[in-house]
Computed example of a mutant assay.
Amino acid sequence: MASMIQVRDLLALRGRMEATQLSHFLNTPQPMIDAMLERLEAMGKAIRIQEEPNSCLSGSCKSCPEGKACLREWWALR
């Protein structure tokens, strides 16, 4: 199980990462990583970087039944 310090350190080493990548690298369940990232964001230590909806290469995001689930979200340190 990873700590918030390990999440912060990995973000510092890698620059920006998706939550799924953090979960994989730290061998920690995704909901735990999500909670840690949200806490780091609330503390002002991390920022969420969301992909713009108009940057969808296939153009199918507008009709996506999953509500634009194909758009990526990264995390980085402030």
Results as ranks from 00 to 15, higher is better:
3 S>R: 09
44 G>E: 05
71 L>S: 00
28 T>P: 03
8 R>E: 07
74 W>S: 03
62 K>W: 14
56 C>D: 03
57 L>A: 06
3 S>Q: 12
77 L>F: 05
73 E>T: 06
19 A>H: 11
43 M>E: 14
28 T>F: 10
6 Q>R: 15
69 A>F: 06
16 R>E: 13
74 W>F: 13
71 L>A: 02
38 E>H: 03
49 I>D: 07
63 S>W: 12
73 E>S: 02
52 E>H: 15
64 C>V: 07
16 R>H: 11
40 L>Q: 03
73 E>Y: 00
23 S>A: 15
38 E>F: 03
18 E>V: 11
75 W>K: 02
23 S>G: 10
65 P>D: 09
58 S>V: 04
12 A>M: 08
5 I>G: 07
72 R>A: 05
39 R>N: 05
13 L>M: 08
50 Q>N: 07
51 E>Q: 15
32 M>T: 15
57 L>E: 08
44 G>K: 06
28 T>K: 12
37 L>A: 01
66 E>W: 01
7 V>Y: 14
38 E>L: 12
30 Q>Y: 15
6 Q>L: 10
14 R>M: 14
30 Q>R: 14
51 E>T: 08
30 Q>C: 04
53 P>G: 01
22 L>A: 07
35 A>W: 02
58 S>P: 00
27 N>T: 13
63 S>P: 00
46 A>V: 14
74 W>K: 04
61 C>G: 02
47 I>N: 07
30 Q>S: 06
67 G>P: 06
5 I>V: 12
50 Q>A: 12
25 F>D: 09
53 P>M: 02
7 V>F: 13
17 M>R: 09
46 A>E: 06
37 L>S: 07
35 A>K: 15
10 L>I: 13
54 N>I: 09
69 A>P: 01
63 S>E: 08
